[in-house]
Write a protein that binds this DNA or RNA. Sequence first.
RNA 1: UGCUCCGUGGUGUAAUUGGCAACACGUCUGACUCUGGAUCAGAAAAGUUCAGGUUCGAGCCCUGACGGAGCAACCA
Length: 566
Amino acid sequence: MNEGNLIDPRETKLAGSFIEQIIIDDLAAGKNDGRVHTRFPPEPNGYLHIGHAKAICLDFGMAQKYGGKCNLRFDDTNPVKEEVEYIDSIKEDIRWLGFDWEDREYYASDYFGKLYDFAVDLIKKGLAYVDDQPAAVISSQKGTPTQPGTESPFRGRSPEENLDLFERMNHGEFEEGSRVLRARIDMASPNMHMRDPIIYRIIKTAHHRTGESWKVYPMYDFAHGQCDYFEGITHSLCTLEFEVHRPLYDWLIDQLKTDDYRPRQIEFNRLNLTYTMMSKRKLLELVQEGLVSGWDDPRMPTLCGLRRRGYTPESIRKFVDLIGYTKVEAINDVSLLEHAVRDDLNLRTPRVFAVLNPLKVVITNYPEGKTENVELINNPEDESMGSRTIPFSRELYIEQEDFMENPPHKFFRLAPGKEVRLKGAYIIKCTGFEKDAAGNVTEVRCTYDPETRSGASLADRKVKATLHWVSAEHAIDAEVRLYDRLFNTEDPAGQKDEDYRNFLNPDSLKVLRGCKAEPSLATARPLDKFQFQRLGYFCVDPDSTSNNLVFNRTVGLRDSWAKLNK
RNA sequence: UGCUCCGUGGUGUAAUUGGCAACACGUCUGACUCUGGAUCAGAAAAGUUCAGGUUCGAGCCCUGACGGAGCAACCA
């Protein structure tokens, strides 16, 4: 497990990405006086998801590994979409993941003054102009990827007029949408982003930090690169879609820089996961339309959702490390994520007994009213986790699926005449069972062999299966929420002509009530994690109360019996 | 028919900068097991999209095809 936040070089030995290689080369070449300075720049318009975790691990990870720093900078250039609620959640999630930006919490809005001055500077140099045309006209003049654009009739305005107009835009003299400031670059550029991009627009919505001070706001493309520059960022790591924006950022920095320093932008592939989607807009729709219970619904790929589901930060970091950073657009299998949690939880969670679908077992030759305490190891992977005792008595619950009246060939569990071990207790033999009118098995009768108690001298007898169980009298009730993938197709957002909502998995949540758990679980607190023996990993949900224990299934155990039945 | 980027087992990534392809997950065997988990041992699986070229030698370099992605928000 990771100690603190430091990335163990041994862990990442084989995961050295092309980005890391560039950083190493830059360092070797003596660039930036040997500094490594990155930044994680989220827009506060939604909750962080596991795709952001991939970026966070890179941004903070590279800084840590190479003795540098990583800033947290909120890209808050659009007050109509951004809220403080999101800022708080973003900070919480980054900390939870295990990273620290120390005192370097910045906002693009910190630089609104400098950005404005730079825009004025561009105007004076004849490199920016105010365009009075409506959005639709500007858009149509952009041309298409295969046809050059046409120049705006306002392109030739004098710096004086532009300056005056821009100032008045910022004083609120004009309506939203009536005028914009554009960089004057090249309407015929094969790169659409160079065709006189809009760099400032009028917005009269109050900003969460600057209030009413500004009536014009910089576009992302006009803010991002310069903010990196202002902060002395050496490596601006971002996703592939910004590759074509780079020439624009470079052009802007060319107008701004006073020496050789400039941030170096490197693009990597964003994370795609099977059976889910990463679009913040669509995730917001799921929340707003009530298709999930909220941003932290355990089926969501958000960090708060994964946390509630029972994922650990270590498992997410491990997963990110496993998938690597390249320029190939790939879709990663969720089962690899699931492997990463199992791998982590296997080592750290105590084993407990819980029966999800209870079936009563009566041990007919066991004395009525008698109770024994049997000892169980908490975690065979970690002796230091010790042991506990749980009560055994005449009436027990086992899992319904652990009994079959007419078992198929390779069924090892309980069936008429068959023997199994009750883990930690005795070997029992099925002598009969009862059914209700509908044909459901309602009770199983067994005898036990007193000689076979775990640890006893004659306890070595081989049986095919070992079952988990709870004592009926002592068990506590619990609610268990079983989660499955939210969508039933690998790429729900990538289906042509079909709405992703059509692919929602109707069985993604199954709520089980009346589950029976061993008594030790009575004191479990929200976010406590356990392995329910033979079933999977479970985590106490924040909805849980002392009257109503609620567990979320994080992920099931590998189940070769289930696989055999496919 | 513009620009940019990408193309290696089923999946995700490697290949010491040109030396006949490695790792992880998954899959399949077998061992062990008081979790049909875990662990351990082993196996199958790509000849690197295709075609030329340079070279003693190419997944790496060159040329050309083919395939995929991104780019035309007053979003980020």
